[in-house]
Design a protein around this nucleic acid. Structure first.
Length: 935
RNA sequence: GCCUGAGUGGCGGAAUUGGUAGACGCACAGGACUUAAAAUCCUGCGAGAAUCAACCCUCGUGCCGGUUCAAGUCCGGCCUUAGGCACCA
């Protein structure tokens, strides 16, 4: 059989009959399946594309047979840097390169038999399309959603070019190796942060996978907290900090401004100026990720200025440090080293005081408890690597040294005294005082409940010099040095926690009871936060504030190959939008262009294009030369597919209402956070100005794993592990490639390429072809196959709509094996198999189906399974004894528990294992398992 | 670093959501057919102990601990790995 000829024959058939073209206002139920349209790169279609397009193709083909009006469109996301780079190098216009690439991609897609509705094809680079992208930008502008702002960008001084974070990885220019700088640049921005809450809420109106929703939620990064104003000593100014922990305001011992904070130069005192400026310069080379790495060494410098803590009027130093980002919150923080890990590390390094304002609570409170203060001391012998413990045996087990603080006694002195009294050791080195803990407990020896405020101390043993112990009568224990492992024996919550504090010095970030906090004392975190917000608002020095991590969208790119931003800068009128009727603003038709010296877009050098008239006053003006990011065109393309050739509007409301939404959207994992968020933002904006029918236009979002090279690495030319789908189609046929990519593994996970496995799929198809020789003349279905046939129909339906493509194929293999085991099968048996296999292998199944005289599958109906025929009347289930399988029994569907029990008890091997034991209970899960528990 | 996934035989992976771990396929080994090869068909295939052999037994889903009659699946703590982190698309 010649696969290639068959494939071409059916591809032509579909084209000729417009099989996959859909019209609106059909009485059929619409279903819109979307795959992310590709960037048509020069290297052609990737086997990864084949995986997701086939999967969604299978779904589209099945649902068409089920009677849905399926929209499965394809287009091209063709703006972007690679085409521009290629064009600069080869002195051609990028549109030429793009045209070629699209031609290749389309040919490859056709040769795979994807059932796209090609009548709706477009590219984001078509002026008919980007006209509407520009038009929509103008709507953003007209509704106050677009504005210019100055923000830092990665700048390569050698290439004179703005770099992406990827190209500037490690602070070095990807192309030339120069040190990358941060440069301030004026950019168009979209007010996406205004939509933070709506984007969060809108998720409830989608069916995205939980992990996709989580990705969006984390990107938006909502946190509730407060803004607090700090006055600067000797200045009129005050700066504002954002904090989620305003309850710890009494524990603030310094403040930190981002190095870029506008006040820095103003408040820095003369003697610190040099240092501060040097530090600012140093930071300009780092990106946010390098700066906020949690376990890097904290750095920073003192500005010489002081702020006033609004709650207790204390004077606290102002530092600058790179762990505070200008782009998050207010670009300034209040630092509470006792209760924030980063602040803690900074405070330790710069020797800043640490004030504990929150105490952890352990144990359960009890009525009539007695209050006291106490200590717990952890003593470590470095030489022996052992800890000093008291073993109280059955009177409380293993503990560290604890004791009650006497009236007027200093806690540290108390700790030393207790160690000496209880163990005799006195030659100690004080290491650290640990956070205080409130502990509720019952004292066995005294028969009373206590609530103690305990201070932990950590000592190291200097020498084993010892005096006599001085013990009370009820103090009966052994003094024991134990290893780290044995510390697990210390069960007492207070002692164990003290030990953990000693071993892991750091901030106490949990909840507890406030101390040292004036009017907050005695409250827990939540109460104290509310109370503090009240205080701040009453005293006009702060307020409740919800902060979002998500920032506004930087919408400018200094590139040639993007949608020109339709704005004109007039010396008299300022920024003026183009008239809508003048759109599209076409890219100039030149093949020679270079970036400018100062990092402007290459468009800036094309003066004919740049110089224009102001739409408002008619005077000489200049066009914006920045272009839009790649995300722009892909933020609304799914709307255009609903009405792809409309020249009056981007899509008509009627058609959008008919299609309703994208029912199923498949794309890469790497797009689940950003592309999806941009697209949702775009749609929500259009909805708010009345241009689309719903606020969320995408219902289900799923993502596929990558196809890796056979070496389990990402495919790349340099690694030489790239598989070209054309080669595979040529040697094995498109259907084989489709089946293999569906079968290769869990669709949602990465899977390595294996040509051996691919051959196995070809063998499977060959076997399907050979079954044709087994046809008999009987009518209807073979009776012995009916249960399996009905189960397979159900399984395929379920799997194709739940991304279980690999198990769909495996169930078809099982069906084929069952057919193969028989002497002969009927035509109906065979036809059923072909229809079920058709979504995944559309060519060969059509051919075989035609050969046995049936009408084309693409014009047929999907089979319906019969619920009654799926039920198995007998089943083999396992019998366990104490959870271990000891035998199996065959049960009938109507066996009651007693019969099942009897059958289980008749099993020889089961009897062997219960013999001589007492049966405690017998668990029978109907149709699943029997477990006999014996003693 | 932070967020989100993933980790099961020699390999890709299954396990209807807590109920017989390893479906289906690949690779491999043995056999049949053949002058031969390919194709095809049959058999075996997690590890281990014991046995002539079979049944059977022990262990086994990244590591440590827990919950449960029962854990690949749930809980706590780690390790490894992939993706995202705002100008790659």
């Amino acid at each position: 059989m010649n696969y290639r000829n068959i494939e071409e024959k059916w591809q032509n058939y579909w084209d000729k009959h417009h099989t996959f073209e859909v019209k609106e206002n059909n009485k059929k139920k619409p279903y819109y399946i979307l795959v992310e349209f590709p960037y048509p790169s020069g290297s052609g279609l990737h086997v990864g594309h084949v995986r997701s397009y086939t999967a969604q193709d299978a779904m589209a083909r099945m649902m068409r047979l089920q009677g849905y009006n399926v929209l499965y469109p394809m287009g091209w996301d063709a703006f972007g840097a690679p085409a521009e780079q290629y064009a600069i190098k080869n002195h051609i216009h990028p549109k030429e390169a793009v045209k070629e690439n699209i031609k290749t991609f389309k040919k490859q897609m056709k040769s795979l038999g994807f059932s796209f509705d090609w009548s709706r094809e477009f590219s984001t680079t078509d002026s008919d399309y980007y006209k509407w992208t520009q038009w929509q930008f103008l709507q953003f502008y007209k509704h106050g959603m677009a504005y210019k702002d100055t923000i830092p960008v990665n700048w390569c001084p050698t290439c004179k070019s703005v770099l992406s974070n990827e190209d500037a990885a490690g602070g070095v220019c990807e192309r030339c190796g120069s040190q990358v700088e941060q440069k301030e640049k004026s950019q168009w921005m979209l007010r996406m942060s205004d939509y933070a809450e709506d984007l969060l809420k809108g998720l409830d109106e989608t069916n995205f996978a939980e992990r996709v929703k989580l990705g969006q939620i984390n990107w938006i990064g909502k946190s509730e907290g407060a803004h607090i104003d700090f006055k600067i000593e000797g200045h009129d100014k005050k700066f504002t900090v954002f904090t989620t922990r305003c309850d710890t305001l009494y524990g603030v011992t310094y403040c930190v401004l981002a190095p870029e904070h506008p006040y820095v130069s103003e408040i820095t005192t003369e003697e610190h100026k040099k240092e501060v400026e040097a530090y600012q310069k140093e930071c300009s080379f780092k990106n946010d990720m390098e700066r906020t790495e949690l376990n890097k060494d904290k750095t920073g410098v003192f500005t010489g200025a002081y702020a006033i803590n609004p709650v207790n009027k204390e004077k606290i130093p102002i530092y600058i440090s790179d762990y505070v980002l200008a782009t998050y919150g207010t670009g300034a923080i209040m630092a509470v080293p006792a209760h924030d890990q980063r602040d803690y590390e900074f405070a330790i390094k710069y020797n800043i005081p640490i004030v504990q304002v929150l105490e952890e609570v352990s144990g359960e409170p009890h009525e009539n408890e007695l209050n006291k203060t106490s200590i717990v001391a952890v003593v470590y012998d470095e030489k022996e690597d052992k800890f000093l413990t008291l073993n109280w045996h059955d009177k409380g087990g293993r503990c560290f040294i604890g004791g009650t603080i006497h009236d007027g006694e200093d806690p540290l002195e108390c700790a030393k005294r207790e160690i000496e009294e209880e163990t005799g050791y006195y030659d100690l080195e004080f290491v650290s005082e640990l956070p205080k803990i409130f502990h509720h407990y019952y004292a066995f020896s005294k028969g009373k409940y206590y609530n103690t405020e305990s201070t932990g101390f950590y000592f190291k043993l200097k020498s084993d010099k010892r005096r006599d112990q001085r013990l009370d009568d009820d103090e009966i224990f052994d003094v024991e040095w134990v290893s780290k492992k044995q510390i697990d024996e210390v069960k007492d919550a207070l002692h164990h926690r003290t030990y953990e504090y000693a071993m892991n010095p750091g901030a106490m970030v949990g909840d507890g009871i406030h101390i040292n906090s004036g009017f907050l004392n005695g409250m827990n975190k939540e109460e104290a936060i509310n109370k503090m917000i009240q205080f701040l608002e009453d005293n006009h020095c702060g307020k409740k504030k919800i902060n979002y991590r998500m920032r506004d969208w930087v919408f400018s790119r200094q590139r040639f190959w993007g949608e020109p931003i339709p704005m004109i800068n007039c010396p008299k009128c300022g920024w003026v939008p183009m008239n809508e009727e003048d759109l599209p603003l076409l890219l100039p038709d030149v093949a020679e262009y270079e970036p400018t010296e100062d990092g402007e877009s290459p468009l800036a050098n094309i003066t004919d294009w740049v110089n224009c008239k102001c739409p408002k006053c008619g005077g000489a003006a200049k066009r914006e030369t920045d272009t839009m990011p790649n995300w722009a065109g892909s933020s609304w393309y799914f709307l255009r597919f609903m009405d792809a050739h409309n020249d009056k509007e981007f899509a008509s409301m009627d058609k959008m209402k008919y299609w309703n939404r994208v029912d199923w959207y498949n794309g890469g994992m790497e797009h689940t956070a950003r592309h999806l968020l941009y697209a949702r933002f775009w749609v929500q904006f259009l909805y708010n100005i009345g241009l689309v029918p719903s606020k969320e236009m995408i219902w289900t979002r799923v993502s596929h794993g990558m196809v890796l090279g056979s070496d389990n690495q990402k495919m790349s030319k340099s690694k030489g592990n790239v598989i070209n789908p054309d080669d595979i189609i040529h040697e094995y046929g498109a259907d084989t490639l489709r089946i293999y990519e569906m079968f290769m593994g869990d669709y949602q996970m990465d899977a390595p390429w294996s040509t051996d496995s691919l051959r196995g799929c070809r063998r499977f198809l060959d076997k399907v072809i050979r079954l044709k020789d087994k046809l008999n003349d009987k009518k209807g279905f073979t009776e012995s196959l009916e249960v399996l046939q009905n189960k397979t129909i159900m399984k395929i339906e379920y799997d194709i709509t739940h991304m279980g493509y690999n198990t769909a194929i495996s169930s078809l293999m099982i069906l084929v094996n069952a057919y193969d085991d028989l002497e002969s099968i009927t035509k109906d048996d065979y036809h059923l198999l072909l229809v079920l296999l058709n979504p995944m292998a559309p060519h060969i199944t059509e051919e075989l189906n035609e050969a046995i005289g049936y009408k084309p599958i693409c014009e047929s109906e999907w089979p319906k399974y019969d619920e009654e025929k799926i039920v198995e009347h007998t089943k083999e289930i396992a019998v366990q004894v104490n959870g271990k399988v000891r035998g199996t029994i065959t049960i009938s569907i109507d066996d009651d528990e007693q019969i099942i029990k009897d059958k289980a008890m008749e099993c020889d091997n089961v009897l062997k294992h219960i013999e001589g034991h007492e049966i405690v209970k017998i668990i029978i899960i109907k149709g699943k398992i029997v477990n006999i528990v014996v003693k």
